[in-house]
Nucleic acid binder design. Structure first.
Length: 822
RNA sequence: GGGGGCGUAGCCCAAUUGGCAGAGGCAAGGCGCUUAAACCGCCUCAAGUGAGGGUUCGAGUCCCUUCGCCCCUACCA
């Protein structure tokens, strides 16, 4: 591609200048209005791919645009540098994950610099930096001391491929590991948890205050899964002093309870199991205990399989509504970790209960009258209650109130709320993560590592095999220590933290990585938080964004973070994915298109423009055979603009005339359009508006009549400022040529449109007869309804078409149209 | 099974939020420039909005039905 300028030289030159002059470094005492622009920090996987280019281009446009608006923009960067891929790669290569990771960081950083993305690199954060780990660990200890971290034995998802436990969030719907694809097993292990469930209600209610995509808020709401209901006792038929406690969201269906179900891991199961049923119950419990929750709750199995999934215990409990005894079953479709781990089963109104009842021949009692035409088993819709004693005739809402009161008085009941959200399992049995800073002493129990001994760092000579235990546990010198309290021999915790911990507070560290003795100074953090604009991928809709919200709230509550923002990210934008023939473009799929090849042809500016132009930023983009041609087109646009600015084939005239005014109007309308589209994340239209403007200006300037020089200068300078956030190198270069004595285009104020030039003298008004366009009139934009009607009727074409017919009705919508109905 | 999104020229996408279906780009074709080609410049081409129905003076936009594709989620009592 022959270009009118040397793209490589220009881009490298400006990148060096931004770095050397610290153009986008910003201090915490900057007097300007503050703006915190943040892109999710990447896992360093090597050179940037198009997905990186896309997100960091959007982010960079925000930074440069907000800067031109006169704000002090905090634009930090860092690397989420702990994680499995580095560890696996190191195992394979026989090297150390640190070496591997740091090489990848150098690669990624250099390709982002070549993209022209600008950051305050003084604030760079790397998860694996001991200076950062020290505080990740201090936060862990602070959470522990605040009662937010606890250790418990729990059934966990164990991935045999990764040799570690996984969070529920890392297990796919089919029960396989999201990373290795192996079938996840269930194991009971002692693990560390964070009490994110303490914040369930706030994590839910806080969503309403956030300017986030509705889709992501919905996903978080579903993940939290709030249900209102009643907890109450089902007394043992054999012994009324004992009871099975259950939770239901449908207490109103109580008269339809024909059996109860208890989870395989429920503590009362043993007691409820009659001797002759022990064998079948034990078999079921054993089978369930091996499967992950995800597999257990996978719904695809039919009736035949259900038979293996439940068993009668031989015991009965009493339905408090009917006072009838009902059988107690154990079944794996009831989870020990939700609600009370036991349910009242209502096959008439619950599909799962119905399916189970069918298999086991249990009775079905309807308590809600289904519609006449209802066919099928369970009916969960609203309707008049039947077979329900004191609730008969009431609909669900009323009946729930009555049933709740009944259970409160009769069955030790109380209204309660349950959440699907579970506490966050943070232990990982891997090497390349932040060690959990705890010591186990046989005398003193669990003891946090003292502050002056942080960070706890892993030694370098650890064998990272896959024996299924933590690599650190195999390192004797690391594992054995002395108790910080009593000095007796003790053992270190050898698990590391889930890497989502690192990404849950990095944005706070960015705001103040400098104050000694603290993770960050709340006073400094208060100057920037909350983040004004967060940009990142949809894949983090639940995990990272939920955990970071939890950390923020918890850090405020332990007085580490300022009590000004309990929500870390005010606005969130989630860009679409790049796909290649329908699948996500990713390194693991090996279908990357490297940006480097474009840096030498259309340049970073051309590639950036393409990503902005390619389609709505929120939508996925399909990379196809045609994509290179679109990218070339973006490069051509820059070339045309450059030539115009050089005066190539431009003609001139002296005196201002109406063609010049028309161009000025186009320029000022473009200011409004580009500004609006930036605000609404419609960069594709902003670029289109710039292309349109260039077409207009270019045609005018290259016509025989030519351009008025002052107007042409205004047009080109305005276009340079509007384009500056999108194509920062070339615009900076061109601006410097035109205004060598002035500050860089990136330090120019964002242009403001002159209202007088936005005003149109006339607009086209459409005259329709019965909805068909018959005439177009030029009218003043402020024309009244009456005048619009009059002008329409007086139009020659219209009056001829009407031919004396009196209109039935005239719809006048000035200045857009008049519709005459005959 | 539940939730969400998207179907507009050959392709990617706009459409003042209910008011003339076309802003921009790609591709294709033509002309000019050129010894020729590339580049460059100018011009042209094309859909009635997946299908059907409804509301309305008026529907790409709102409602219902239906088809196709994509994403998320999945026994949470």
């Amino acid at each position: 591609m022959a270009r009118p300028f040397d793209v490589k030289t220009i881009e490298r030159r400006w990148q060096a200048r931004w770095r050397d002059e610290g153009t986008y470094e910003v201090d915490n005492d900057d007097p300007r209005e503050r703006y915190y622009a943040l892109c999710m920090y990447p896992y360093p996987s090597g050179s940037a791919h198009q997905g990186h280019v896309r997100i960091y281009t959007f982010g960079d446009v925000v930074v440069r645009y907000q800067t031109m608006l006169g704000k002090a923009v905090l634009s930090p960067f860092g690397f989420d540098s702990f994680g499995l891929p580095a560890e696996n790669a190191a195992i394979k290569a026989g090297s150390h994950p640190r070496l591997f990771t740091e090489e990848r960081i150098v690669e990624l950083k250099s390709s982002l610099i070549r993209l022209g993305a600008v950051y305050d690199w003084r604030r760079e954060v790397r998860s694996h930096d001991p200076a950062y780990m020290r505080w990740s660990q201090a936060i862990f200890i602070a959470f522990y001391k605040a009662g937010l971290a606890y250790r418990a034995e729990a059934p966990v998802n164990w991935c045999p491929g990764c040799g570690t436990v996984l969070a529920n969030e890392q297990v796919l719907a089919d029960g396989t590991c999201e990373r290795s694809g192996d079938l996840v097993e269930r194991r009971n292990l002692e693990q560390w948890f964070f009490k994110i469930t303490d914040y369930a209600e706030e994590l839910l209610s806080g969503l309403t205050t956030l300017e986030w995509p509705e889709r992501i808020k919905t996903m978080q709401r579903n993940w939290i899964g709030r249900s209102e209901g009643v907890e109450f006792d089902l007394a043992f038929a054999s012994d009324p002093t004992k009871a099975l406690r259950v939770f239901t969201t449908r207490p109103d269906t109580g008269f339809g309870v024909t059996y109860a179900v208890i989870a395989p891991e429920h503590p009362l199961l043993e007691e409820l199991t009659a001797d002759e049923h022990h064998a079948t119950v034990r078999a079921l419990v054993q089978r369930a205990s091996k499967e992950s929750e995800i597999v257990r709750t996978a719904s695809s199995e039919g009736g035949a399989a259900l038979e293996k999934r439940g068993a009668f215990t031989g015991s009965y409990v009493v339905n408090p509504f009917s006072d009838e005894p009902v059988p107690v079953y154990v079944a794996d479709y009831v989870l020990g970790t939700y609600g009370t781990g036991a349910i009242m089963a209502v096959p008439g109104e619950d599909e799962r209960d119905y399916a189970f009842a069918e298999v086991y021949g249990l009775p079905v009692v309807r308590t809600t009258r289904p519609p006449e035409d209802f066919e099928g088993g369970a009916y969960s819709g609203d309707g008049e209650h039947i077979n329900s004693g004191f609730m008969d005739g009431h609909e669900i809402a009323d009946a729930k109130v009555l049933a709740t009161a009944f259970l409160v008085s009769k069955a030790n009941g109380h209204a309660t709320v349950n959440y699907r959200l579970r506490d966050w399992l943070v232990s990982r049995q891997r090497f390349w993560g932040c060690p959990i800073p705890m010591v186990y002493c046989s005398q003193c129990g669990v003891v946090p590592v003292p502050d002056d001994q942080l960070p706890v760092l892993a030694p370098d000579d650890v064998v990272m095999d896959r024996t299924g235990q933590s690599p650190l546990a195999t390192h004797e010198a690391f594992r054995t220590t002395t108790c910080p309290v009593c000095g007796a021999p003790a053992q270190r915790e050898t698990d590391t933290m889930d890497t989502f911990n690192d990404s849950s507070w990095y944005f706070l560290r960015y705001a103040d990585p400098w104050t000694p003795g603290v993770a960050f100074d709340p006073k400094e953090v208060a100057k920037w938080m909350p983040v004004d604009q967060y940009v990142g991928g949809i894949e983090h809709a639940i995990l990272h964004l939920m955990y970071a919200r939890f950390y923020m709230k918890a850090l405020v509550d332990i007085d580490w973070a300022p009590n000004i923002a309990r929500e870390p990210f005010s606005r969130l934008f989630s860009q679409g994915m790049i796909r290649l023939s329908g699948t996500k473009m990713s390194k693991s799929k090996g279908n990357l298109v490297a940006p480097e090849e474009y840096y030498d042809t259309v340049g970073a500016d051309g590639l950036r423009l393409f990503h902005l132009f390619a389609g709505p930023p929120a939508d996925d983009f399909d990379w196809t055979d045609q994509t290179d041609e679109i990218i070339d087109g973006c490069g051509r646009f820059l070339d045309r603009f450059y030539r115009l600015a050089q005066g190539h084939e431009v003609n001139y005239h002296e005196d201002l005339d109406e063609t010049d005014v028309a161009v000025r109007q186009a320029v000022h309308r473009a200011i409004v359009r580009v500004t609006d589209e930036f605000e609404h994340w419609s960069h594709n239209i902003a670029v289109a508006a710039m292309m349109e403007l260039l077409n207009t200006v270019s045609k005018w300037a290259r016509s025989e009549h030519g351009a008025q020089p002052t107007v042409l200068d205004e047009a080109i300078d305005t276009m340079l400022t509007l384009l500056a956030p999108m194509a920062p190198h070339l615009t900076a270069e061109m601006w410097e040529h035109r205004h060598p004595e002035e500050k860089s285009v990136h330090q120019q104020p964002w242009p403001v449109a002159d209202p007088a030039l936005l005003k149109r003298d006339t607009v086209t008004m459409v005259i329709q007869i019965n909805g068909k366009v018959r005439a177009r009139l030029q009218v003043p934009p402020e024309i009244s309804m009456a005048d619009a009607t009059t002008e329409a009727l007086e139009d020659a074409v219209i009056s001829a078409a009407l031919a004396g017919v009196t209109p039935k009705r005239i719809v006048s919508r000035p200045p857009r149209l008049v519709n005459i109905i005959t």
